[in-house]
């Protein structure tokens, strides 16, 4: 059994990463659309971003890895780092807005924040 296990050790391909990323993305999407709490929405957005990051890195590793020298092309990784940076800024701004919304409306329920309509 042991031997078979090592022999049968699953080769991790790009699809695995993609599936994980897709699941992560769907969870995030669900969180964004279904949450009532503003903070939860913001957290779900972080999930969405990280699902995307995962995709970037997976593609960068598996597709044409020797393109630019021994270490491979780091384009995807660079984008991912960039996204993390922007996401940090976004989270900061988002939380600040959330704080102000709470101060103003005394609630975090976004179903009640529907002034922007006809």
């Amino acid at each position: 059994m042991n031997g078979t296990l090592t022999q049968q050790m699953v080769h991790i391909s790009v699809q695995h990463y993609l599936v994980v990323a897709a699941i992560l993305f769907c969870i995030g999407l669900y969180g964004v659309t279904a949450s009532r709490n503003l903070i939860k929405v913001l957290m779900s957005i972080e999930l969405l971003l990280n699902a995307v990051n995962l995709n970037f890195i997976a593609f960068s590793k598996y597709i044409n890895p020797e393109a630019a020298g021994a270490g491979g092309a780091l384009t995807g990784q660079m984008v991912a780092i960039f996204v993390i940076t922007v996401a940090a800024a976004e989270a900061g701004v988002g939380l600040a807005i959330a704080l102000n919304v709470f101060k103003h409306f005394k609630t975090m329920d976004i179903d009640k924040l529907h002034l922007m309509k006809w």
Binding site: V32, T33, I110, D111, L113, H114, L115, M116, K117
Partner: peptide, 13 residues
Amino acid sequence: RYSQSGRIQHYLL
């Protein structure tokens, strides 16, 4: 105009 509910999650959905 009545499709404009003002709830951002509706738009997203």
